[in-house]
Design a protein around this nucleic acid. Structure first.
Lengths: 227, 227
DNA sequence: TGAACAATGTACGAAATGGTACGTTCAGTC
DNA sequence: GACTGAACGTACCATTTCGTACATTGTTCA
């Protein structure tokens, strides 16, 4: 009763209390993200996650029921974070060409700066998307991703700078593929071709090439005239 | 001495003998490939590999020293198999455009029909290419892969159908990225965008798009004239 | 204040798992 | 035909690893 400023406001008063479930949960999730993305589902160790956490192993099983559930929550959190970042993108005030270019560069840079997310997706694919299939959350989150691209594309076609007949979903596939591969296969590619792909100058080159490639694919053909 | 037709020819007479080291080794490697590519290094179980083999667990440790060595041999065998298939490609008698098109389609199809290999490479990347770095074999194998592409590209530039200034290694990167992603991220992509990517008609579409994309990127610009 | 429930720590159990000790059989050689 | 080393089987060990039982502390509300 004599406690400073806490009166029926549990979520706001996080300082004075000893028990802080939300932060414990968040802490576990953060550590789990690092561990799972680094070592995979079977490679990550619950005990090691527990050690690196302020909490104890008991807490992991308290908030998340078992290893696989923890992994699923990790995956969901990662997707949510991505979507939040994507939502900040504002393309409506740009010309279609600029907007598409911006979108490609954003995707490329985003993936490059979020290797944890990429690795989790790789790992999830190794598991045949078994966990993603369980998550309605993720699937609903991703519903609107294509919409942004669709809008840009339609505007481009209407303005005559993009050629017709392309499927925005396939366009998204192309952009994703190039941006994803840049992170996912960096190690093997660098080793095999003795090329420091992660070097800033090479990353810049790749970003330019990827952007160029997508634009060339979408732009109308510059053929002077037919016959 | 009364044995049928075996006289100082151990490698040829494989039938009558009870011990058949080569085939045991090959069998182990084949099973290990399936297991590792399916479940990863940490996910695969030596006991399970042993069970699925005609041999026993003891034999795995007899021929390969430990789990990681077995994994490394698996990886090396997979790369070797790929290189053998690639070597069959004969592009010299084609025009540069046809040759490049052929090369892209070959890569796309090859990856699509060898998911085990793709998955092993994914897994190896999860391990930061740690094992590939140990293998001089693989790195030497891959030396000549770029050469084929380089030849085609140079021919194309000389004949005036490819634009100058592109790096064959980066070109290879683009082709690999699109072909690789098609397999590596099939599960998550199909789920998220509710699109049966593995369906033959969609695979055909993607193959066409990928080929088209690469060709559009490499072809000379069709601009009528400057100013 | 004290009952009720949420949050947390400690210690432990049971199964899985990589790896090995030890013995046996096979195949070529003197 | 005895000897030797390669090839192979069985049983086992030590450790790791997921998960839980149980006790304890914190928090809220009547």
């Amino acid at each position: 009763m004599t406690v400073p400023s806490t009166k029926a406001s549990p979520p706001a008063a996080r300082r004075r209390r000893k028990n802080d479930p939300e932060s414990v949960r968040a802490d576990i999730l953060a550590v789990a993200t690092r561990e799972f993305s680094e070592k995979g589902l079977s490679g990550a160790r619950i005990d090691e996650i527990a050690e690196k956490t302020r909490a104890s192993k008991r807490m992991i099983y308290y908030y998340f029921n078992d290893k696989e559930t923890l992994y699923l929550h990790t995956l969901e959190a990662a997707y949510q974070k991505v979507r939040l970042q994507e939502a900040e993108l504002d393309l409506d005030h740009l010309t279609p060409l600029e907007a598409l270019s911006r979108l490609v560069r954003f995707t490329f840079c985003h993936h490059a700066t979020n290797p944890d997310f990429i690795r989790l997706v790789m790992i999830e694919n190794i598991h045949h998307g078994r966990f993603l299939a369980q998550s309605e959350l993720i699937q609903s989150l991703n519903a609107g991703v294509i919409d942004v691209l669709t809008n840009v594309y339609i505007r481009g076609v209407e303005e005559g700078c993009f050629r017709e007949g392309l499927d925005p979903r396939e366009l998204h596939w192309l952009i994703s593929a190039l941006s994803f591969f840049n992170v996912s296969n960096q190690h093997t590619f660098s080793l095999i071709f003795d090329w420091h792909q992660a070097a800033p100058e090479n990353q810049q080159k790749l970003e330019d090439h990827v952007t160029d490639m997508v634009l060339r694919y979408v732009r109308v053909d510059e053929e002077p005239s037919k016959s």
